[in-house]
Computed example of a mutant assay.
Amino acid sequence: MHILLALVFGAVYGGVLHVLMSGRTSRGAALAPMLGAVLAGLVYVALTWLGVTAGDPWLWVASLGTPIVLVPVVLAVLTRVRSAQDAKERLRLRIS
């Protein structure tokens, strides 16, 4: 049941970043919240499988810290890649 806290945090954090970061018109509205939730959930599950309990603060530091670090990086990279790909496609189609 504790995993829900990590999932909700990841989704909310991703949603906030989607709104605050530039380039949100070039990515779907559900991408950032889903990415945050998946990252938090995967880290939580992996650590519990390794024997870390919900009472251990490192479980929470890792499962909440992973989306904090990775979601903005992934969104920035995806925005740059999409912008570059769109510019290339506009050149190919001769659209100004």
Rank of each mutant, 00 (worst) to 15 (best):
M1G: 13
H2V: 07
H2L: 14
I3W: 00
L4F: 12
L5N: 00
V8P: 04
V8L: 15
F9Q: 02
G10H: 11
V12A: 04
V12Y: 05
V12G: 05
G14C: 10
G14F: 11
G14E: 13
G15Y: 07
G15P: 08
V16N: 01
V16C: 06
V16L: 15
L17K: 00
L17Q: 11
L17V: 12
L17A: 05
V19K: 13
L20S: 08
M21Y: 09
S22A: 10
R24W: 01
T25A: 07
A29D: 06
L31E: 09
M34S: 07
L35M: 14
L35P: 03
L35Q: 04
G36L: 06
A37S: 04
A37Y: 03
V38E: 05
A40H: 02
G41W: 00
G41E: 01
L42D: 03
L42C: 14
Y44F: 14
Y44A: 09
A46S: 06
G51Y: 03
G51F: 00
V52C: 06
T53W: 00
T53F: 02
A54G: 02
G55F: 10
D56I: 05
W58Y: 14
L59S: 03
W60M: 00
A62W: 06
S63H: 02
S63Q: 05
S63T: 09
S63G: 06
L64K: 01
L64D: 03
L64V: 09
G65V: 12
T66N: 08
P67K: 02
I68Y: 11
V69A: 14
L70T: 13
P72A: 05
P72K: 04
V73E: 08
V74G: 00
L75E: 11
A76K: 01
V77S: 12
V77Y: 04
L78N: 09
L78W: 10
L78C: 12
V81D: 12
R82D: 08
A84N: 07
A84L: 10
A84V: 05
Q85R: 05
D86M: 08
E89P: 03
L91V: 07
R92I: 08
I95V: 14
I95R: 15
I95Q: 09
S96D: 09
S96H: 13
S96G: 04
